[in-house]
Design a protein around this nucleic acid. Structure first.
Length: 845
RNA sequence: GCGGGUGUGGCGGAAUGGUAGACGCAGGGCACUCAAAAUGCUCCGCCGCAAGGCGUGGGAGUUCGACUCUCCCCACCCGCACCA
């Protein structure tokens, strides 16, 4: 007999789908469903993480399609970004050629997976048709005051030679390059996301179909805080600095203040450094390391006394010294603080180092003791006794004390309560070539002038070189020379390009009308938006999703999206990673040498027979070589096996471990399923089989529940169970064929090619992709009799068989007649008898 | 430190407060085979010859009954953090 041959089956059905146009999204009368997986960066190779991501999306898309929805399931490419430039620098060639070549390669790797993608909507963000529309929106944002320019201290990535937004600095390192970030001042373009901080925070509550974890991460990122802003009057400060504004979230500790401190970037520090070489040297030193948060974390707290004093707002006779300190951030609050060493560990460390006072403000109710080397910082919700309180009760929580202190200060004209956010405006300028050019010109007469929309797209020049560091746009001989859009005189083009997060902040909207002559087509967006199910990695929990939420609002404000798109992703699912064991040997110096899984068999290197060390599973990474290439898997077993295995075992939100044995097993199982269908024709006609019918309907219920609940592993398990039931069935050919047709429908979202083949072999009409989704018949789910466990004192001791609809009395009678129960009771009556019909009997003796 | 999450056989994992371990992997046995692969049948939480006992990170509690609910503790993972 022939064998399961995915290499023959899969291309055949892919061609059939293509010919029938099954996956072309068509708007119409039917309810719509928009499934989107986070689009990939075109690195050139797909990896197992992609396979997992797109397979999950495909299961949802195919399931909804079967249920009769008009499904939009598009794919595109997040195609701008530095790797293309790095490749150009390292290997020569042009970023565009590299990128489009990679896209072609990756598309060719993805197509054999048999995803139900509407490829007619495909685009890359580096297509001028796309980024030209992005430029048009930028101009609208600019006009609406959502984009602006400011001189700002920025994070400079010395490796990528580019600026990073604060949000993109992770542990003081560039989120992509990993290089230590330095401080530099440049004039940058920003989006006013911080104006929307409150709105973005509040709206999180409405995102009920988002993981709680992601909402919390965004909440923490936005970082709303309540505090007091007030001004110290200064003594001995330079002209124009007679007041020093500070912000504090702990105004209740004002009587514990022993010093004030300002950021090295504070205007006062900048003023002082002009005349004082010592200050200049100190702040220069701070700036060398200061923005690297990791360095700050480990670096010693250092400061310098300016000699300036400030008067305490409650007692003019008390003067506090003003220090410049390396741990004060200019970006947060006012860039100046007062130090309360007793109740802040940083302040305490600083005070101990420089011999500043430590004044207790409150103490613990249980073990009051003065502060030593550890600041007393209880949770704000915990009541404490105020020994230097000035507002509210003597014993109160920190939170209450803060509110009382704000009220007290406001009443006396000492500052005001302020709500602040950690979220800062989104810096989008990048001094790079391979990005969307910012469509403005710099005119000597008119200043910064928006480009005319009819001149869009401002296209990147093709003739550039990458043999020097810096921005190729800037040193291009002619590109930046242009006419001023206002006066027509000679002007210079902006040579900054946009952060690639801009590209990915609206692609989901563009998919609804990918060829529109405007950024969006409001009718199409109104029909398809919002994304009903968005699926991607949790690594995008903050930046990408927050920026997209901002963009949706900005696009509404500029008329590019209807009001209903305020939250563009109705439901979000964050999938776990694909992991694999790591294999290594040691070189002669004991350093690890990693080996690919395909080079190892039975704990030994295939080539040399040397034993390998095995490290437990970790995220697949090229450096550890614990990677499996999906192309090889598809070649060896077919796409359905890869899809089946990646969906089985682990719940989608958790990590899944790829194992060769698991892949083999998945392939063997699909072979068994295929054989069940292929053997049908040799089967005699015969009776129906009630057990089989029940198994089919249970499978319908369980597979549906699994898919709807994003528990594809449970759907897979239900299909295994059904396969076993079909195999064990005594039913004749017709009944088995019917069961297999339902099985094909249920399998179709996960292993669509095999499902088509089984559907055909079992005599199904047309394509299973058009066959709809089966409904479970509740009547078919129940059995005539049920087995009830009997517990004696809560421990299972026996079981009885009763009719499904047996009433309580009948069950009791049956239970009391049970041998184990009779034995346990020894003639006495039970103390208690619990009967849960259909579930359990518990006899208490 | 703060916030969140996770913890179940050798492994991945199932389980509206109601038979813990579905389903799969790995492993053992058997059949088919000259042999292997493939395939099929079968066993498989731990201790024990058995009867039975013990079992969901640990400890208490609620309940007729707890993986599930409550409290305390432990371990690991993730996120955030000189945020004033």
């Amino acid at each position: 007999m022939a064998r399961y041959d995915p290499a023959e089956i899969e291309p055949r059905w892919q061609a059939a789908w293509e010919e029938a146009g099954c996956f072309v999204a068509r708007s119409g009368e039917r309810p719509k469903y928009y499934v989107l997986e986070m689009f990939p960066y075109p690195s050139g190779r797909i990896h197992m993480g992609h396979v997992r991501n797109y397979t999950m999306g495909d299961v949802v898309a195919r399931h909804k399609l079967a249920q009769g929805f008009a499904v939009l399931h598009p794919m595109g490419w997040d195609a701008f970004g530095m790797p293309a430039e790095n490749a150009a620098m390292e290997q020569g060639g042009h970023p565009a050629d590299w990128t489009y070549g990679n896209i072609a390669d990756m598309r060719a790797q993805m197509k054999p997976l048999g995803l139900s993608i509407d490829w007619s909507r495909e685009f890359a963000t580096c297509d001028p048709e796309y980024y030209g529309q992005q430029q048009a929106m930028f101009l609208d944002f600019l006009e609406a005051g959502l984009a602006y320019r400011k001189a700002a201290v920025v994070n400079w990535d010395p490796v990528d030679m580019t600026v990073l937004a604060n949000e993109q600095v992770i542990d003081g390192k560039g989120w992509r390059s990993g290089a230590e970030v330095e401080r530099r001042e440049l004039t940058q373009w920003f989006f006013r996301i911080s104006d929307m901080a409150e709105e973005l925070l509040e709206a999180l509550d409405g995102l009920e179909a988002w993981p709680e974890k992601v909402r919390l991460m965004q909440k923490n990122w936005i970082g709303r805080s309540r505090g007091l802003q007030f001004a110290f009057s200064t003594v001995g400060a330079p002209e124009g600095f007679d007041r020093l504004e500070v912000y504090t979230t702990r105004p209740d500790t004002l009587l514990g203040a022993s010093f004030a401190a300002i950021s090295p970037d504070h205007p006062l520090a900048r003023r002082l450094e002009r005349d004082d070489p010592e200050v200049a040297a100190f702040v220069a030193e701070c700036r060398r390391t200061a923005t690297s948060e990791e360095a700050l974390e480990t670096a010693e707290k250092v400061g310098m006394d300016t000699g300036i004093r400030v008067r305490h707002p409650f007692d003019e006779s008390v003067e506090l010294p003003v220090w410049i300190a390396n741990f004060i951030l200019m970006d947060y609050g006012t860039g100046a603080i007062f130090g309360c060493p007793a109740h802040d560990q940083r302040d305490l460390d600083f005070a101990r180092k420089y011999g500043l006072g430590v004044i207790d403000v409150f103490e613990s109710l249980s073990v009051p003791e003065p502060v030593g080397d550890t600041a007393f910082v209880p949770p704000k919700t915990e009541p404490v006794r105020y020994v230097r309180g000035f507002a509210g009760a003597e014993v109160q929580t920190g939170a209450d004390a803060v509110e009382a202190a704000i009220e007290f200060c406001e009443a006396r004209g000492v500052g005001q309560g302020v709500t602040r956010y950690r979220l800062r405006d989104w810096g989008v300028s990048r001094q790079r070539y391979w990005g969307c050019p910012i469509p403005v010109v710099h005119c000597p007469d008119c200043g910064v002038v928006p480009e005319k929309k009819e001149n869009l797209p401002i296209v990147l020049p093709k003739d550039v070189s990458f043999d020097q560091p810096g921005n190729p746009l800037d040193r291009h001989p002619t590109w930046k020379h242009c006419a001023c859009a206002r006066c027509g005189g000679a002007a210079l083009r902006e040579t900054d390009t946009m952060d690639t997060f801009v590209d990915s902040s609206w692609y989901f909207a563009r998919f609804t009308a990918p060829r529109a002559e405007t950024p969006t087509d409001t009718a199409a967006a109104g029909y398809w938006m919002n994304v009903d199910q968005y699926i991607g990695g949790v690594e995008h929990a903050i930046l990408h999703l927050l920026y997209s939420r901002f963009f949706a609002r900005a696009m509404i404000a500029t008329g590019h999206l209807p009001e209903m798109c305020r939250e563009p992703f109705s439901a979000l699912f964050t999938q776990g990673m694909v992991t694999h064991e790591i294999y290594l040997t040691r070189d002669d110096r004991g350093r690890p040498v990693y080996h690919l899984p395909e080079q190892v068999e039975g704990g030994r290197l295939i080539a040399t027979g040397a034993e390998v060390e095995t490290i437990p599973s970790a995220k697949m990474s090229k450096s550890k070589k614990n990677v499996v290439d999906p192309v090889n898997i598809v070649r060896a077993y077919g796409a359905d096996t890869a899809r089946w295995f990646i969906l089985s075992d682990s719940p989608p939100e958790r990590d899944v471990e790829w194992t060769a044995a698991g892949a083999e097993a998945a392939f063997r199982h699909l072979g068994r399923v295929w054989r069940l269908a292929a053997e049908l024709e040799t089967l005699p006609e015969g009776a129906e089989d009630a057990d089989l019918r029940r198994a089919v309907h249970r499978a319908i219920r369980d597979v549906s529940e699994g898919i709807e609940g994003f528990a594809f592993n449970k759907s897979v398990a239900a299909l295994y169970t059904l396969t076993n039931a079909v195999r064990e069935s005594t039913a004749g050919r017709a009944a088995r064929a019917e069961a297999l047709r339902v099985m094909a429908q249920l399998m179709a979202p996960m292993v669509p090619h095999l499902a088509e083949e089984v559907w055909r072999l079992a005599g199904g009409d047309g394509l299973v992709v058009d066959a709809g989704w089966p409904e479970a018949d509740p009547a078919a789910l129940v059995e005539a009799t049920v087995t009830l466990p009997i517990q004696i004192n809560g421990k299972r001791r026996s079981e009885i068989e009763v009719a499904r609809d047996a009433d309580r009395a009948a069950i009791e009678a049956a239970a009391m007649a049970d041998e184990q129960v009779v034995k346990a009771l020894g003639g006495a009556a039970p103390k208690k008898l619990i009967v849960v019909p259909g579930r359990i009997v518990n006899v208490v003796v």
